[in-house]
Design a protein around this nucleic acid. Structure first.
Length: 385
RNA sequence: GGGUAGGUUGAGCAGGUGGUGAGCUCAGCUGACUGUAAAUCAGCCGCCUUCGGCUGUAGAGGUUCGAUUCCUCUCCUGCCCA
């Protein structure tokens, strides 16, 4: 392949009990420092944001969705208009998700067989078929920096047999994706599945890592499993990749606590809708937890969301103003809140990279954990920054 | 002053033409959200000691076993006429 060049700048220390590492990923449209978080722009836009806002929050790579863009506006149309970067006016790197996740998120609209998946469009009910070859073709038309192999995720409640079946299918589809991929300026990542089953997960890591992908995605860990189950799965999977020179991408996790624990275990890349989605409902991330800006107590609060935050919202607006915008359902609310949460997230990743660069990560891990809170538990909720 | 239509839980309504009115939409309160069918969804939203109980249909009387419903008077609102 080689639409990508990955280099580990600071490997994990021999002593220190962490697999966290600092890296650098070179892609067709730019360099991505890792560990890194990718904001999600499913429909060729990060909801509520202008591309200038993406620069502003510090995004260096974003994710877009193959399935959604295939359905609307259509990958051929995007190709004819000069590709996804030009279409959405974002010059930085883009990773396209293969559409495999829609196999679970649109579970009542599809039928899986060994060759591929037949979907009914969530937009108009029309019938479409995705195969590994088709998913690659669409991603090549879009022209993303990183394409991803078509997979079949499972949910934590799936039985061993179902997980085994889906994982085996994902492996066959991985080989077919590689065979179909033909664009030298585009990287291709493969996806590890295996659910929470230790034997299947380990087998999947070994199999996917045996193929000449540019990066390794860890899938199926953004569902209803507990943080402990996720972390246990990472503790199992990552050591199997210790001698592997490629970037590791944990798909779909984005709470600060999840990011930190996964970096600690050796993950380089992340994406999640969480910070942006949660922002649109008024949950704003601050050191130690989060606040719900819609709560009554913020209506008269003249302070910014977070005192030391450099984001578009915190630079010049009060909590009271944000509270008002949300109550009035004003569009600016969604933009400001999304800017804040993405700024918080990307700044958090920058702090982690800074610690890795200076080899102080193990030392400041407790401090970073405090900053992250246990947001994924719905536990820590602080009242003021 | 006469006529007429009305007065239902913060707002707006539905319903109820003698037999258990707490139903809807807003507003409000709280929570959830992780490779986006999500500016969405869920719970609460008269009072209490809440697996239940109580109160409540403008007010006061009356008829009746029983009244939100029928009768009388009063108050309030819209419209029409003087």
């Amino acid at each position: 392949m080689s639409g990508a060049r990955f280099e580990v700048l600071v490997p994990p220390p021999a002593e220190g009990g962490t697999r966290a590492r600092l890296g650098r990923l070179e892609l067709a449209h730019g360099v991505v420092e890792t560990p890194q978080f990718m904001p999600v722009g499913t429909n060729a836009t990060v909801k509520a944001l202008h591309p200038d806002d993406l620069d502003e929050v510090g995004a260096s790579i974003i994710l877009a969705n193959t399935y959604h863009l295939y359905l609307r506006p259509g990958h051929e149309r995007i190709r004819n208009l000069g590709g996804l970067h030009r279409f959405m006016s974002w010059d930085g790197p883009i990773l396209t998700d293969s559409g495999g996740f829609q196999v679970v998120s649109l579970s009542d609209l599809r039928v899986v067989d060994d060759d591929g998946v037949t979907f009914r469009s969530h937009l108009d009910g029309s019938v479409h078929r995705f195969t590994p070859e088709h998913a690659i073709e669409v991603q090549e038309a879009l022209g993303s920096d990183i394409a991803v192999a078509f997979d079949q995720p499972v949910t934590p409640s799936s039985s061993w047999d179902v997980v085994a079946d889906a994982t085996a299918r994902t492996h066959r589809w991985a080989e077919r994706s590689l065979a179909a991929h033909d664009r030298p300026d585009q990287a291709l990542f493969g996806i590890v599945q295996g659910g929470l089953e230790p034997d299947l997960r380990a087998e999947s890591v070994r199999f996917i890592a045996s193929l000449p992908f540019d990066g390794i995605c860890l899938g199926g860990l953004a569902g209803d499993e507990t943080p402990e189950q996720r972390e246990a799965t990472l503790d199992l999977a990552i050591p199997l990749l210790d001698d592997d020179p490629r970037p590791r991408y944990l798909m779909g996790l984005g709470s600060p606590a999840d990011l930190l624990e996964a970096v600690h275990r050796g993950v380089d890349l992340f994406d999640s809708v969480l910070p942006a989605r949660v922002a649109r409902t008024g949950q704003l991330w601050v050191p130690g937890g989060r606040i719900n800006i819609r709560n009554t107590r913020y209506q008269d609060d003249p302070e910014p969301i977070q005192a030391d935050c450099p984001c578009l919202a915190c630079r010049r607006f009060s909590r009271a103003y944000l509270a008002h915008l949300f109550r009035a359902k004003e569009l600016l609310a969604y933009r400001l809140a999304t800017c804040h949460n993405l700024t918080f997230t990307l700044d958090f990743m920058a702090r982690i990279r800074s610690a890795l660069r200076t080899s102080t990560f193990p030392a400041i891990l407790p401090e970073l954990r405090l900053r992250a809170g246990r947001v994924h538990d719905g536990e820590a909720s602080v009242q003021s920054a």
